[in-house]
Every structure is written in C-alpha cells, then in structure tokens.
Amino acid sequence: MRKIYLISTVVFWILVGGFWLAGLSAPKTLAETETPVQKGYTLTDVAAHATPNNCWMAIHGKVYDVTAYLPDHPSRPEIIETWCGREASLAYDTKTKGRRHSETADRLLEGYFIGELK
C-alpha cells in the first residue's frame, strides 16, 4: 500500500505541474480569443430563454448564453437553473453569504457573452 501511496502522490503532483505549465503557456483564455459580439438585448429577450435547454442570463449589464455551461456548474442544477431568463446579478454576487463568484468565474463567464443589456 505504501508503494501505491507514493506512486499516486508523485503522479498527482506531476499532473498538477503539467496543468500549471499548460495554463502558463496558453497565451489567452477562451473568452479572450473569442470575437466579441456587440449586439444588444432587452430583459424581455432574455426572458424568452428561460429553460435549461435554452438559458440566457443578464449579469451586470451583459447578456450571457450559459446553456452549454449549465451541466458544468458545480452546484445542484436547480440553484443555477432558476436564474435562466432573468437578471441574475444578485445571485452572481452572493454565491456564498455576501461573497461573489471568483475572478476565475468572471473569466469563464466571458466565454458565454452574447451581447449588452439594453
């Protein structure tokens, strides 16, 4: 068992190092490489996309199509799905008591940006 522990721990740290190097060598995030779309939407437009299969959200004046991201969200599906088709800034800013989503989440969100909120 000791051998298994040592091998698995060393492999883990090598892979963590690999992720770090891969992240370091990647020049831009997915969000940054995407061409920004400058289209405008109203909250009525957003409300038309209120299902898990077609889920838009308005957060801090921007509209995001997060349909593809929903299965990847770490929490229970109901927590994020209730915000489909809605202005979700409050939910975004209060992930845990008084604490907003992380900067990593901000960058991740940018990848799903589809336009400004009119």
Partner: peptide
Amino acid sequence: AGASLPKAPREAWELLSPFSESWP
C-alpha cells in the same frame, strides 16, 4: 480540470489552482 484542458488550458489551471480566490 482536464475536461477544460483541450479547449482552454488557462481556465483548466484556474479551476485547479489553489491560488484561485474561492472557498470551495
């Protein structure tokens, strides 16, 4: 993290990184 690695290596590292500003 590996699930994001092929498309977005930087995001994959940010998901894994202990330096992320995230209690979870």
